[in-house]
Each structure stands twice: as C-alpha cells, then as structure tokens.
Simulated assay, not measured.
Amino acid sequence: MCGRMTMTHPNDAMAQLFEAAPANDLPHVPNYNVCPTNAVAVVTARAGGAESADRAFRPMRWGFVPHWYKKPNDGPLLINARAETIAEKPAFRAAVRTRRCLIPATGFYEWTKGEDDARLPWYFSRPDGAPMVFAGIWQVWDKGEEPLTTCAIITTGASDWMAKTHHREPVVVAPEDWATWLGETAAKAAPLMRPAPEGAFQRWRVDREVNSNRARGAGLIAPLAA
C-alpha cells in the first residue's frame, strides 16, 4: 500500500524530465506530507501518440472516484488499486486499459507496529535521490458542479526486502518503460506491474509526528535519532 508520500522536486524540473507541458495550477512543492485527497502532479500521455505534442503534467485529486459515485465520498476512498485484480474490478478496468498515468514522488511512508500497537513510520526513497515514478490510473468524475479529475496508485505484492516493513508496495515504472505505461507504444503494459528490483529503495525510521496528516516540514523525513 502507498498511503502517504512526499514531493520535493521542482515542478518545472519534473515537466522537463517527462517532456510534458506543465499546467498553471500544479500543487505547491516541496510537500513532505502528501495525503489522500490532496492534489498531486500527474503525467498523462501524448494525445496523438509518441510523435505528437508534449505529454501533460497536470494536477489530480489523489483518490479515484468511480463513475457511479453520486458524490466523491459516496464510497471507499480508492487511493490504491491492486495490480492483481485491476483488470477485473469495475472501478478500475476501463481506466487501466485507456487512462494510465505516471505519478512522480520523492518518497513515501509505510508503518510497522511497535509496542502497544503504536504506529511506527518509515520513509522510503531512491538511494540516488532521483524521483520515483509510480504507475497510476485516472479518470474524470463529472457528477458534481465541476468535473473532478482523480487518480490512484497501483500496488503489487512486496519484494522480500519490502516485506520486512509491509506486504504491499507501489509499482515503480522505469524511465525506459514510461512510454509503454502511458500507452504511447504498442507494447503491453501488464508486465510492468511488478515489485521494484533489489536496491531500488532505501528506508529509515522517522518520527511519529508524520502520523498526523497536518504535520509539515522537512523534519518529517529526518532519520530518527538512535
């Protein structure tokens, strides 16, 4: 599962990285505590294929809203979609065929249980400091006063290393696979929904301050003193 993340890389640098045209209303960065229902910056495909105009770098609500919801909170908050069942689930099956996206992040948090079931947070990032890029799906929910564009992160079973902390992990898409995941090539995207290779992440314990969705600041990802 991926239920909280960070984004500290500048929006203009991310737009250049993905060869994407940035929207004017992208979420403010840095953000060390991106929570469900917050806006996240998402990459969507070139409308006419790999040789057409730039991709789009645009804000979306993190929390996928199925088309049958009468209001955004009409059912469970769908921040993640399981890779193993995404093609069959009514909420996701159309999106995974035709509306795939890339969701960049600097890192993400997971929790283990301590004494008395205390929630102990861990921070995960790439060892080289580069952004990680999650596989996502998106759609527009149009039953409100204004259309709401929403997304979810795809997760898969954890690698042996990740399983020491959590049994699920976000699907990370390598740069050479971005075009395939976005549907800009004829290659199949399903094989990309797999755990990250060994060494893809590093992790350390952080203070329980991040357990609050109101917590802010770079101190949230500081390694916990021994």
Score class of each variant (00 low, 15 high):
residue 155 T to D: 14
residue 37 T to H: 01
residue 107 G to A: 04
residue 109 Y to W: 10
residue 67 H to I: 09
residue 148 L to H: 07
residue 55 R to C: 01
residue 1 M to L: 13
residue 72 P to D: 00
residue 156 T to K: 12
residue 210 V to M: 10
residue 77 L to C: 05
residue 214 R to I: 00
residue 108 F to M: 07
residue 81 A to W: 05
residue 134 F to W: 15
residue 88 E to F: 02
residue 3 G to D: 11
residue 200 A to I: 03
residue 176 E to W: 03
residue 49 G to S: 09
residue 221 I to N: 01
residue 62 W to V: 04
residue 82 R to A: 03
residue 124 F to L: 13
residue 111 W to N: 12
residue 167 H to N: 15
residue 152 A to Y: 03
residue 62 W to T: 02
residue 50 A to N: 10
residue 175 P to R: 13
residue 190 A to D: 12
residue 33 N to C: 04
residue 168 R to V: 01
residue 184 E to Q: 11
residue 117 D to S: 11
residue 128 D to R: 01
residue 89 K to V: 00
residue 204 W to L: 09
residue 98 T to L: 11
residue 224 L to H: 03
residue 41 A to P: 03
residue 142 D to E: 14
residue 70 K to P: 00
residue 215 A to F: 00
residue 72 P to M: 06
residue 16 Q to M: 11
residue 174 A to C: 08
residue 79 I to N: 10
residue 36 P to L: 08
residue 144 G to I: 10
residue 87 A to K: 13
residue 25 D to G: 06
residue 156 T to G: 05
residue 161 W to T: 06
residue 11 N to P: 09
residue 34 V to S: 06
residue 144 G to N: 05
residue 132 M to Q: 03
residue 192 L to G: 11
residue 76 P to C: 09
residue 60 M to S: 02
residue 224 L to N: 02
residue 84 E to Q: 08
residue 209 E to V: 10
residue 43 V to P: 00
residue 157 G to P: 05
residue 110 E to I: 06
residue 175 P to I: 12
residue 172 V to G: 08
residue 181 W to Q: 10
residue 217 G to L: 00
residue 163 A to V: 07
residue 95 A to H: 02
residue 144 G to M: 02
residue 17 L to H: 07
residue 182 L to I: 00
residue 74 D to L: 08
residue 163 A to L: 10
residue 212 S to E: 06
residue 24 N to H: 12
residue 83 A to N: 04
residue 182 L to P: 06
residue 34 V to K: 02
residue 178 W to T: 11
residue 130 A to K: 08
residue 193 M to F: 02
residue 48 G to K: 15
residue 203 R to M: 14
residue 139 Q to G: 15
residue 121 P to F: 06
residue 2 C to T: 04
residue 79 I to Y: 12
residue 80 N to Y: 04
residue 176 E to I: 01
residue 139 Q to P: 04
residue 5 M to V: 00
residue 86 I to T: 07
residue 23 A to G: 11
residue 8 T to R: 13
residue 3 G to Q: 08
residue 210 V to H: 08
residue 181 W to I: 02
residue 129 G to W: 01
residue 18 F to Q: 07
residue 10 P to C: 03
residue 96 V to M: 15
residue 116 D to E: 13
residue 192 L to F: 11
